[in-house]
Design a binder for these strands. Sequence first.
DNA 1: CATGAATGAGGCTTCATTCAT
DNA 2: AATGAATGAAGCCTCATTCAT
Lengths: 212, 212, 212, 212
Amino acid sequence: MGIQERKERERERRRQQIIVAAKRVFSEKGFTRTTMEDIAKEAELSPGTLYLYFKNKDELYASLSLRILQYLIIRLEHVNGNASLDANQKIDALVDAMFDVYEFDPLVIINMFHLQSSETLKNLSPQLLAEIEALSRKSLGLIAKIFEMGIEEGVFLDRHPFAMADIFWALFSGVILWESSKKIMDEKKDYLKQTLRVSFDIFKKGIQREDY
Amino acid sequence: MGIQERKERERERRRQQIIVAAKRVFSEKGFTRTTMEDIAKEAELSPGTLYLYFKNKDELYASLSLRILQYLIIRLEHVNGNASLDANQKIDALVDAMFDVYEFDPLVIINMFHLQSSETLKNLSPQLLAEIEALSRKSLGLIAKIFEMGIEEGVFLDRHPFAMADIFWALFSGVILWESSKKIMDEKKDYLKQTLRVSFDIFKKGIQREDY
Amino acid sequence: MGIQERKERERERRRQQIIVAAKRVFSEKGFTRTTMEDIAKEAELSPGTLYLYFKNKDELYASLSLRILQYLIIRLEHVNGNASLDANQKIDALVDAMFDVYEFDPLVIINMFHLQSSETLKNLSPQLLAEIEALSRKSLGLIAKIFEMGIEEGVFLDRHPFAMADIFWALFSGVILWESSKKIMDEKKDYLKQTLRVSFDIFKKGIQREDY
Amino acid sequence: MGIQERKERERERRRQQIIVAAKRVFSEKGFTRTTMEDIAKEAELSPGTLYLYFKNKDELYASLSLRILQYLIIRLEHVNGNASLDANQKIDALVDAMFDVYEFDPLVIINMFHLQSSETLKNLSPQLLAEIEALSRKSLGLIAKIFEMGIEEGVFLDRHPFAMADIFWALFSGVILWESSKKIMDEKKDYLKQTLRVSFDIFKKGIQREDY
DNA sequence: CATGAATGAGGCTTCATTCAT
DNA sequence: AATGAATGAAGCCTCATTCAT
């Protein structure tokens, strides 16, 4: 059993090793221009080894997103579970969570939104697509719950909570993608977090029934 | 010169022919999975011919975005030029313009945001990148102007107008990308326009200094 | 049209060029150990070009057999069409035809029987498999017809003509495969044609109702 | 020594375990598409273990044939050793032996003929090739002996006994390969044994000096 | 002996791009 | 200008084999 456990740990360690390498290379070069050999080299492994841990390039790419979605869900459940917060406080907590998730691993977040907003999605295996979909749906559901609560409390505009969650999510991803795209076009300073902050403020104000 | 002109016109017509074909194929298959031969077939031309009009695949792809950005700028200039509108009316006109642009060619809009939010950007030639950047910057500038006006009038929150423009743009692209991504994951109905409408409403409300 | 024709001819010439090269390499190394690059080199073409003429390695391999089967069918039809021959004379003509086909291209014949008697068959595309099956069936049918005639004439044993055709075919392929296998094991002299001759004699005698 | 023997027995048991597994997998998938891991899984062993018992994939594949050839030789020696049979009775016994061998393990027989009629032969190590050759030669020699006897008795046509043995062998393998190939092309009923029966009848009749 | 994770060479195939016609 | 056949670089992935445990 000790052996069993150690093996398990080592396997997980190896996976991480690959994931870390993949993250780095994908972030730098994007999906298409990254080769499996690039990742193997970065991970100091042989190309064949990658395939012992990930079925193919797509799955490896997507698995990055899975990790961060799982982390996001944990954070969101925590927000939702905190009964002491009213709707607006939960929005604040939600925003904090999003910042946390972003800082947890900015490169992966950008990767994830690239994935979600790109053709790569069409290449994924049905299972993996379903998995991503499930986690996305769950995240969105948890976010929607907050809006639902605010609507019930009468403090938020009465819009479909899922639409609001979609918009919140779209705003988050839109800002991140747009800002990183601007950085590509123009290697200037990084306004991402400031812009994100303002956008969340605007959003929050925009959904209030009365001014606050 | 008559001959010269005719040649010029024919050349332009050919370019359009290619662009139309490219649009169709890129929209259907995404950038990577589209081959130059696909486009050539769709345009009823030979692959070689494409290279007489576009330097390479990337430039062809990007040129789609150029077209729509140019159209967008015309629309935005029109909005800005209308002196009879106050800031909030201009926001409405801006929103209308965005809807127009979207409906002008939804596939190309999605393409453009894919481009802007993707690795492809990294592959472009510096000139083309600069061209896109210039047009984007101009668009954003025109949008920012509206916010600037509202801030000066005292009806909008006093935030950096360019940040507001970025956020507006990010919201627009974010919703479009996210909704089309949801459609990939789950071939359901298309809520894009409704969601876009709500998101603009929230945004507009969110930037008001006083409630309206 | 002149141009059209010339292109057609050139295309066919290129195909032949590839087929000749493929035949040589496959015969020398067998299917698995032959690489597409081997063939390309032998044909003095680039690997990519092979794929302009053959969908993949399997199809290229199988197309060798198709050619010879077509040739065989022509020969068999000729035998069947000759109304002046009685059943036993047709058997002789059949045997001559088989020798002809063998000499038409011994390497390809061996390839074909390798193909027919091997796992490679399982890898073929359904269409190609169907095509081979159709030609094989047709060949066998033409052979069976001869036996049928002999049975009706009362000179051959009354066995199912198709079974007799199968046996004839199996004998032919069996001798060829076994003799070439012996040559691999033991680079000695080549008794193939003599053995083939004796085997056909035995077969012919074996199917007679009365001694002749 | 008891220990020594037990170890020996266990080693042999392990070998058998692998052979049984290999037989199953090779039969199902053919040589190329079978991986060592497939076999290891089927044998409930690890891939590495296979290499403790067989030098490589080729040798493992070939060893299947060795087994059946050994069995065949035993049967053939038995036939030859039975002094009470005349030549034609020995032919009958030979045919019975072939059927026995076929039924002893049809899959392995097919494997063996695949091996003998395939490129794989070219990959074998010289020793293994020599071993197979030796057994084949011995089998063929035993078969030839029967024909020799018949020729001496004056009941068989006076042909080179080894050629007759080759033809007999080629007929046997040809029918088996062709029938199993037909089954691949067309998942119909299995006429193998009937066809084999008829083919042996024809062969027997074909080699008689006088009618019988 | 047994394991099974790791290796890494090598094959098939695609496709952007070129260039002779 | 247009063609489209040809190129050939490069990528993904497989799998026989090894070796540290």
